[in-house]
Design a binder for these strands. Structure first.
Lengths: 186, 186
DNA sequence: GTCTATAATTTGATAGAC
DNA sequence: GTCTATCAAATTATAGAC
């Protein structure tokens, strides 16, 4: 849709990478500027404040993440493939070096975030939960809305928690086993 | 054992509270000093560096957390009570205002932490996993070590993830339902 | 759109008096 | 053990030239 300039894209890419690795409070405009070969004042030209930049990062991340999951309402979507793909997205985060899920790391830091960034972070989780709930209701016959919400929460929490725990324990995760677990929908 | 001075205890308390709420990169010596009514230079007298202080916080937290869980080897320990108590500890974190599990928030920020703090954080998870694995093996007859490790990881990840997700979604968690889930050990 | 220059503030940390 | 005073560095952000 809106064709962002190359510079803006590179700023967002760099900021996203830094936030996923270290969080909101450990990256600076100078770092990002240096990384893409401009000065920090030029970053401020595109994103007036740090909160503004971080919020833009989260919105783009959420949008691209949800879009990558596929449409739960699509009639020919395979139910288990949808969930497998979802888990695969988290597995990708684990594989990409020293990174966390953007939503997960920001949610951990939530109390220290500017409102703008905290709101965008909450939205990430709301949209994830909505997608998961839709999949569970449409494809797994979980009609009770309280139950489907609980199961969706369980899946999301398990994946975020796995990233958190695996960050400190360098053990390789058996994501395959987790997939099975979830598909059984115990 | 070592009788720490009142001041040291208050510094550690304040630092722990700040880290649990905002993470390592969003608290300062001045904040803590002001909170307990001394000057930041006096905090440096007790803890030379920020890394030093944070590491001390994590070590104390881990020690007290594990101790509070009860001894898995104790012959008269009730198996389900041990696990229920474990989950209760996490529920307490959720109830205490705007707080995360110290290990969870630091693990999210791991790449931005001084080595000293990162190492202490890893140790928190190692000791949690050891305790959980012991409980599973001693009381639930999970003899296959790979399986008990996986189940322990699942429980720990689920609890850390629940804290992360619930921080952004202000929904009340059905911990009771989770307890049932875990006790079934699906 | 990018730059130089700089303001205003905060931070981790140290020296030395009491 | 706590204080005052201060440093050196980093940070977010702005003004104004090109």
């Amino acid at each position: 849709m809106s064709s962002r300039s190359e510079t803006i894209t590179r700023i967002l890419d760099s900021a996203e990478s830094h936030i996923c690795k270290k969080g909101y409070n450990a990256f600076s405009f100078r770092e990002i500027a240096h990384e893409i070969g401009i000065k920090s004042a030029s970053v401020h030209y595109h994103f007036p404040t740090k909160a503004n930049l971080a919020a833009a990062v989260v919105l783009r991340y959420t949008d691209s993440f949800i879009k990558s999951l596929g449409e739960p309402n699509s009639p020919n979507a395979d139910a288990k493939d949808l969930l497998k793909n979802y888990i695969q997205e988290f597995q990708n985060v684990l594989i990409s070096n020293d990174s966390m899920c953007l939503g997960g790391i920001l949610s951990a830091e939530l109390t220290s975030l500017p409102d703008e960034v905290a709101d965008a972070t909450r939205q990430f989780f709301i949209e994830n939960l909505r997608w998961l709930t839709d999949v569970l209701q449409l494809h797994f016959g979980v009609n009770d809305i309280a139950i489907s919400h609980f199961k969706a929460m369980k899946i999301l929490a398990m994946l975020e928690g796995t990233l958190i725990v695996m960050r400190s324990l360098n053990r390789e995760v058996q994501f395959e086993e987790m997939v099975e677990d979830f598909l059984n929908l115990s």
